[in-house]
């Protein structure tokens, strides 16, 4: 698994390091820490220091015998291209620091595409919503356009339930596997909520998807709970359960959920949720 983590110096970034360490440690993932700055001339030293500090913090979560990553040979990032600097260390798994110039959301999506990552992770502010310093709607824009699943960590409390909201759109194998890893990592229960429009032709398709998922999990001997909601019941339901659960949304191209959770809704959800939001691809 390859994980991209976009970070800055704010608390919402600092606070996710423990979760990232747990995720990386359990999945033995290749990890890229990405920092984004405005200027293109050279990597800003304060950002380099922040990322190096985060790297040390992450390494400190592992006992020396369990650390799958190597130390960097130096603290200097090499220029990879214009406004693009990087340093890597290859142990059993690879750990990379990358700094790019430009917009946070755009560069995160670009690096996610380039490295073919499986999961993009980022933090999100508290009561003030999910605005990153100097840029609006960063988590929302990444969630909308990233080529991979996106985990927005709002509050780093342990949750015992993952609620996956599903409609008639196709469920990818990758997205199921991503959920499975989060279920394992959090030792959480999994609830699958099917969404249908009250009067629509998709009812049978939603049920078909749910039967497929049920069979999949039954074969794996994993207990999941299913629930069926009408589309207008989804928003209050999600707002309610997000207090104690990680909410996972399948957002395929044809997704009804994508329509339901319009930009403003995802943004609102990110604002109101007290836990984490996983957008599945």
């Amino acid at each position: 698994m390859k994980i991209l983590v976009t970070l800055d110096a704010k608390n919402y970034s600092k606070n996710i390091l423990k979760d990232v360490a747990r995720l990386a440690g359990n999945t033995l993932a290749d990890v890229v820490f990405l920092g984004v700055q405005d200027d293109t001339a050279s990597p800003r030293q304060s950002l380099v220091n922040t990322l190096l500090k985060y790297q040390k913090d992450i390494y400190s979560y592992f006992s020396p015998d369990d650390l799958p990553y190597a130390e960097f040979s130096s603290d200097r990032l090499e220029e990879k291209g214009k406004g693009d600097w990087t340093i890597s260390a290859k142990g059993m798994k690879e750990f990379t620091l990358r700094i790019k110039s430009g917009s946070v959301a755009k560069q995160t999506i670009a690096v996610a595409e380039e490295m073919n990552c499986d999961l993009a992770v980022l933090g999100c502010g508290g009561k003030a919503g999910c605005e990153w310093d100097g840029e609006m709607n960063v988590p929302l824009r990444i969630a909308k356009d990233a080529p991979c699943s996106v985990l927005v960590i709002k509050q780093t409390k342990k949750t015992n339930q993952i609620v996956s909201i599903l409609d008639h759109s196709v469920v990818s194998q990758d997205s199921l596997e991503m959920i499975n890893q989060l279920v394992t990592l959090n030792e959480a229960g999994l609830k699958i909520v099917g969404v249908q429009k009250k009067k629509d032709g998709h009812k049978a398709e939603v049920e078909k998807r749910m039967v497929e998922l049920l069979r999949y999990y039954n074969d794996l001997e994993i207990n999941v709970w299913v629930k069926l909601l009408n589309s207008e019941e989804v928003k209050p339901y999600v707002t309610n359960i997000s207090r104690e659960s990680i909410v996972a949304l399948w957002m395929g191209k044809e997704s009804l959920i994508k329509l339901l959770f319009s930009q403003s809704m995802v943004d609102k959800l990110l604002e109101t949720t007290q836990s984490s939001l996983l957008i599945l691809r």
Partner: peptide
């Protein structure tokens, strides 16, 4: 698909070459 630090450790103790958590890309 259900990776934990414990299963990774046990695998390496048994001499595995590498441990990959799903999902992964074909290239990986």
């Amino acid at each position: 698909g259900f990776a934990t630090m414990a299963t990774a450790k046990e695998s390496f103790n048994k001499g595995v070459f590498d441990f990959l958590a799903k999902p992964f890309k074909l290239g990986e």
